[in-house]
Design a protein around this nucleic acid. Structure first.
Lengths: 216, 216
DNA sequence: ATTTTCGCCGATAGTACTATCGCCGAACGA
DNA sequence: TCGTTCGGCGATAGTACTATCGGCGAAAAT
């Protein structure tokens, strides 16, 4: 075997990441109820007391996990959406804009599930982190929609775009879940549906010029 | 005060419902981590040991809570959707089909949040119940879409309708969350967005006749 | 080479949670 | 009216979890 000598820093980081990974695994399989320092450490293969070398308590770990998740999911999706929204007239590019986030979600099911679940959690620090992240994603998606030519002049239009962004995210997540559950094996078909849904609002917002905010 | 004498049956049912309500409240405010027999009973104002008069353990309570939720959310939304889908040519009716579920969700925030969160929970009995419920809702929505004239002849088309149903549910939930978080104060505007999204798939599925599954 | 640092460990005190038991008193049945 | 039923309560044994402490050994510093 190669040089197995790790610097102290490296070794500590490795242990820390093991703890975070174990916590994520437990959250995904057993739920919050399975979270305990003993359980996490056992799953990570280290002593229970070592937990406190890395985190002050379980809440501290959850905060770290939230930041970890933010670092993972955010940038990639963003870049993909941006790249394709710059050329929305290209059907393939538009499909990419929906496919890449979808693949990203399906590629990290635990992170993804945790993220969605956490957004509805008003208690743990995970919830707060997830909502912050969602707000950022939403804002970026709105930017992209504006870049794609959708109107955002009036406050009503701006709010409308936020709603659309939320909708697109929700749709993408719904397709990802269906795919992960095995109900929608063909990802391309998922992309189809996303594109079709989006076409609705797009034509609507482009056609329905700033005449009136909402009829009803 | 009026007659405060309750029959034994009534009193027991009342206590049981108090326990379920307390558990729901705790799940919404503190999360799964706050769930303990002592905590639930304290919040319900009864002795900890009394918990076991009504439930065998916490898992038993969660199962009961899942059924309770099913009884609450299911039928009302269903009926509203059905009533309006029967006359999809009427714009007002279509709006109703989206508004009623939305209002229902916003009217019971704890139930709603719990339901969504649970669907991503693969551990607790709540998760299983939530997914079962989601499957029923999906199937019913598909029926309504078929009744509204959307094609479902081929297996591909049927699957497509399931995806659309999932999408509609996800969109509705996303709008409900935005409203509950105060970002989208005007429910009518939420309905607008839902209708616009739906218009996309509708025209797409009606126009793109059974020629090809997914042209691209 | 020697000393210091520190990540990890085992042991453990303190605490919270689960589940059971016997008792009480009010509803119930005769 | 009188015995029975049973839902709720306090007490408690057993268990799991949290957080701390001193010690060990290898990396790091001198």
């Amino acid at each position: 075997m190669p040089d197995v000598t790790l610097s102290r820093r490296e070794a500590k980081d490795l242990t820390r990441r093991r703890l975070l990974a174990a916590a994520l695994r437990i959250l995904d399989t057993e739920g919050e109820g399975g979270l305990s320092t003993g359980n996490v450490c056992r799953s990570a293969g280290i002593a229970q007391s070592t937990f406190y070398v890395h985190f002050r308590n379980m809440q501290d770990l959850l905060e770290a996990l939230g930041e970890e998740a933010s670092r993972h999911v955010g940038p990639v999706i963003r870049e993909a959406r941006r790249r394709s929204s710059a050329a929305p007239h290209s059907a393939d590019r538009l499909r990419d804009a929906f496919r890449v986030p979808l693949e990203k979600m399906c590629g990290h099911p635990e992170f993804f599930r945790l993220n969605v679940r956490a957004r509805f959690d008003r208690a743990t620090p995970l919830g707060e982190a997830a909502r912050r992240r969602a707000a950022v994603t939403r804002a970026q998606l709105v930017e992209d929609l504006v870049a794609a030519g959708l109107p955002s002049g009036t406050p009503e239009e701006a709010l409308r775009l936020e709603m659309v962004a939320d909708g697109v995210t929700a749709l993408t997540e719904a397709m990802a879940i269906g795919h992960l559950e095995g109900r929608y094996p063909d990802l391309e078909q998922c992309v189809d549906v996303l594109v079709e849904f989006f076409a609705g609002v797009r034509t609507q917002l482009l056609g329905d010029r700033p005449a009136s905010g909402s009829g009803g």
